[in-house]
Structures are given as C-alpha cells and as structure tokens.
Design a protein around this nucleic acid. Structure first.
Lengths: 316, 316
DNA sequence: ACCGTGCCTGCTCAGATGAGCAAGATTGCC
DNA sequence: GGCAATCTTGCTCATCTGAGCAGGCACGGT
C-alpha cells in the first residue's frame, strides 16, 4: 500500500513539476481527489524525491549557511552552491565573487581593512566593483610575496581593493618568513614595518584566506619554505596556514619556532577581532577550513557548499 | 539593470525554494513588491536557473516522452529518468521495470505475446508481478540461446512471463542462426518449429529488445557469431540486431545471406504489427535505438532518458 | 520640447494550494 | 468479536499565487 502510494506520488510529481498541471487535473488523471494529490506531493517532497537546484554562479545555499551558523556560532556564513560546477577553479571563482559581494554589503563599512594575500584574495579584489565602498583603507597583515615570480600580486590585491573603494593601501614591506629570529625582530622593530603592523592591529575588519599544507602551498611556491619543511609540518599535524602561520586541526600553532620567525599580526588578533572574514574554497581546503572555523579564527566564513558540508561533517 | 534583476531573481529563488518563504515575505526581505518577486521567480524559471529533478528509480520524463511521440510518430514512449543514476546497469534495470509496468497496464490485454530473448527481456520478466495479467500466452519469436553457458535464460524469460500471467509459454526449439541455409529451411519446415513461427506471426503484441553490434553482442556471447563476423557486419553498416537480425541505421538488413539463415519472424512482421514494444536501454544502444524507431520497427519504445535524447538528436 | 511607442509597475480578481478539522476506516489488542 | 487508538479521507476556509489590465515611466524620433 505504501509502495503504491510512493509510485503514485512520483506520477503526481511528474505531472505537477514536469507538465505543470494543477493538482486538480492530476487528480482527474490519476483518479484521486485533489487533496490526496496534494498530500502525495508533500510526501514526495518530504521523502526527498523532489530535488530543486538553483543553477547559477551566484547561487547560495541558505539552508547550509543557517546550519553552519547554528553549528559553529559564526556571525555569518556565505555558502556558494556547487550545483553544476565542473572543477575546483570555478568553485574558487564563485566563492571569491561571493566574498566580494559580502564585503560590498558589509555594515558598518570598515574604516581599515586588514588583508592577507594569495590567489583567492587577489580574485576577490578583481571581483570587487569600482566604488564598492567609499574611503576604506586597506592594510596588509602578513609578510609579502616578494620572492614570487609573480611578484606584485600581493601588492596589487591590496592596491586594487583600496583603489576601488577610494581608499589608500598600506603595504607591509617585509618577507613572510625570515630565516633568523634576530632578523625578524629587527625588521619588526623598524619603523616602516612596525607602524604597518600596528595599523593592521587596529583594523576594523579582517579579510583573509587560507592555504592547504602541502607542496602546492603558496609559501612553498614563493620560496619561503621547502617541500620538505612543509612535509615536516604535516607530520607535526599541520592542516594549513592562515596569514602565513601553520596550524593543526585544533587551530594551534604547529611549530612555535617557525611561527616566531613569521612576520604579521598574531592569530590572537584575528580571534579577538569583531569582524574576521575567512574566504576558503576548494576540496583541498576542507581540513584547514574546519580548523579555522572550529578554533574561532573567523567570525564570518565565505566558502563553497562541499567545504561547508565537510565542516558540518555531512560529507566526510 | 538586467544584471541586478538576474541576481535578485536568484536571491528570490533561494528564499522561495530553499527556505520556502512566501513571495510576500521575500518581498519584505528584498524590499520589493510581491508582484515583482513573482515576476523575478518566473524569470528565473524561464531562464532555466531553477532545475527540478524527480530522483526516484521509477521516475519518468514525461516531457521527453511527449517530444519523442511527436517527433517519431510512436504510439507511445516511456522514458525513465536517469537522474542520480550511477551506471548503465541501473539504467537498464529501471528501463526493464518501466517495461514491466507498461506491459501490466497495456490495454487491450494481448492474448498472445511474441517475445525475443536477452538480458533485458529477462529482467523485464523478473520485474513483472505475479498476476500482471490473466491468461496471456507467450511465444518466442526468434531462435534460442541454447549454445549459451547460461542455457535456459531465454526459456526462463518466456516461462516466467507466461506463468505470472496464468498463461502458457511456447518456446521456439531452434538455434538463432544456422550455418547452412538448407538446415535452416529444413528446421523451419519441421512441424514443431513451423507451428511456433506461425503462432508468433499471429501474436497480438510483440515485446523485444535490441543488441548493439560489437563483441559484447549476445549473439557472439552465445556462440552464433564470431567477433570477426560482427566486425564485418559493422563494416557493412550494422548498428545492432533485432530478434537476431542485424540492421543498419536505416533499418535495413545488413547481410541478406546471413539473415536468410536466421530463424525467427521477419522484421516486416514487426513493422506491420499493431503493438510492437521495443525495450532498449544503455549508452551503447543509442545507435540501434535510433535505427529501430526511425525505421518503424516498433510502435512503443521503452528506454532511458539519454537514449531518448540521442534519438531526438539533442544529446548527440 | 513634444509626442508616440513600448516596457515596467502595481493592482484586481479568480484560481490554486496548504492548514486544520471532523468523520470514517483500519489496526492492534484483549 | 468488541473496543480503543491511530491513520486516512474529504472537507472548509484562509492564504498564496498567476493572469490580465490600467496607469506611469523612459526612450527615441521629429
């Protein structure tokens, strides 16, 4: 009997959603009252037989966002749909777009915005519209990418963001990681660097991404770390890095000595920030995303559906 | 402006379909009148941003069925959905189930049902419910599968179908293809075979599947043809076989000499039949399905969504 | 500037739909 | 078999939604 009902609900759903007939008409066809049809339809929906997807690059998953907020205590969560997406690349692009949208709508508008650098953030900067805000000053909060062959990407990110918001960009003129602790102390003590760090510490909002801990890390790519060093970090439990600092799945610094030599605001600053927006997308970043959210490193997460589900533990 | 509207329609769709808010509530949230929301939603649907799928093994694609009927002049078309299907196997199983359903609902109930044999039809027989009809006699219409290691499948198919309909099965006691024309003539002349063929010719409905023309063909598997012979047939334009007879994409016999040695009712009998139900599923059978439908070998087609779209030329 | 054309907006109204309710059917239990 | 608990059915009513229409607005030609 239940079996018959299930089959009927499928027939009804076909007529309702594919042929868009009215429930009354369906009732006539299937020899049922229109109320029965309504109930069958409701049953089909409840059983999950009806799948409704919004296929659009800007589509979000509100229900996942809500669950994420509830489960993690995030102030806000933006989850872009991965319906109809081919690869990680498009996922990251969609997420960057969503981050740009979020930033544009952010209230109160931050006077000073602290940002990290990387592929993701650069893409965010490109997606921002001219005039997305008026008078936002952008400060880099961790050491730069100067060793990179694509030198200037980090600077371009900050400059673009500031320019499009009629604000000024303040760059952090320092490597990301220094080889000797003394050098790091010295450079931090220097006025030009110290002042920027102090400005960064006073930012009204932060925007940063995360890197996975493997040989594809931007820090390896930029020459600050070797593949072996990253492998060693992974052995010690590292799942990725935030503003140049490697953390484990609990959000703790993996290698305090290395961390000491890393130039940028400390993680505590992010944890205490009123607004810390993390933008993390792609299947390789599920672990670091979970660590960031789980350890309270951000108040807002912008991510893709799969990563969000991974954080919720529904997609392992 | 249109860009803004598109984005709004996506936001509206999210709230409507994911959060199932009323259009009025959405209007409040997005600061729009409820009519505007209604129009945005309509626009989103029209643009194809809203995809509704019925995910269920028994789900059909009524719109495709309709288009197929209109494009080909088929009396009836049954197209099972391939939403959420992993492989060809499940597709074939679903299609077999649908064929069993169709057969069960077929009116007028055929007194005599002529069937071929094969994996697909056997699966159909298994999906039929006890008592699917009352008093249907089942006749084999083409030569058997006796050389097969799983000898008896063909017989079992007919017997099962007949038994479940409280009818009798009549088997065709003959190989599918004979090596010498004389032998074929002789066996046909034999009372035991001739009578069955005559019965088959008078069937009130036919149910058959199709085989693709490659080394996986059931005829190769059963030992009636060698892989080389099939390769030669393909060179001559064969796309597959129906009741043991190889046809090209126009529905014409590929090798008349071979065909002469094949035991079973001629294709003309199917072409002239009032009810000829073809059950064809799987990505490897797109070509033969197109040939069967295109050359009027069946009046009813039961198939999967991808094959149907291939026939319609919408899925190349 | 003026006017016409055509799109967009907000509305009325009727049809479609879901919530809730009471009567009837079914099941399980003694 | 009798009875109670539960589920199902058909209904009323309030709400939601889409069709169609009149007025308003923007745009382009003269």
């Amino acid at each position: 009997m239940t079996d018959t009902d299930e089959l009927l609900s499928i027939r009804a759903a076909e007529l309702y959603y594919e042929e868009n007939k009215t429930q009354d008409e369906i009732g006539t066809v299937l020899r049922l009252t229109r109320w029965k049809v309504g109930r069958l339809l409701a049953q089909a929906k409840a059983s999950g037989f009806i799948r409704i997807e919004i296929v659009h690059p800007r589509a979000r998953r509100l229900s996942v966002e809500r669950r994420l907020r509830e489960a993690t205590g995030l102030t806000d969560a933006i989850v872009v749909s991965s319906a109809g997406v081919s690869g990680d690349e498009e996922l990251q692009s969609r997420t960057a777009q969503a981050a740009a949208d979020y930033l544009t709508g952010l209230r109160p508008v931050p006077r000073t915005l602290g940002i990290s650098w990387g592929r993701t953030l650069h893409e965010v900067s490109l997606h921002l519209k001219q005039g997305w805000a008026n008078g936002v000053n952008v400060v880099q909060i961790n050491g730069g990418v100067s060793l990179n062959r694509r030198a200037g990407t980090a600077a371009a990110t900050a400059v673009t963001m500031a320019h499009k918001a009629s604000g000024a960009a303040t760059l952090l003129p320092s490597p990301a990681i220094l080889e000797r602790l003394e050098t790091k102390r010295a450079i931090e003590a220097d006025r030009s660097v110290g002042a920027v760090l102090k400005l960064g510490a006073s930012a009204s909002a932060y925007l940063f991404s995360a890197g996975q801990a493997d040989q594809n890390s931007a820090l390896v790519d930029s020459g600050y770390l070797t593949e072996e060093q990253v492998a060693e970090l992974v052995r010690k439990g590292a799942v990725g890095d935030i503003v140049g600092r490697y953390i484990d799945s609990n959000g703790n610094i993996v290698d305090p000595e290395l961390d000491e030599r890393t130039v940028g605001i400390p993680l505590e600053q992010l944890r205490n920030a009123k607004t810390a927006i993390a933008v993390i997308a792609g299947s390789s970043k599920h672990a670091i995303a979970r660590a960031v959210v789980g350890s309270g490193l951000c108040t807002v997460l912008v991510t893709d559906e799969d990563t969000a589900l991974a954080i919720l533990g529904e997609h392992a």
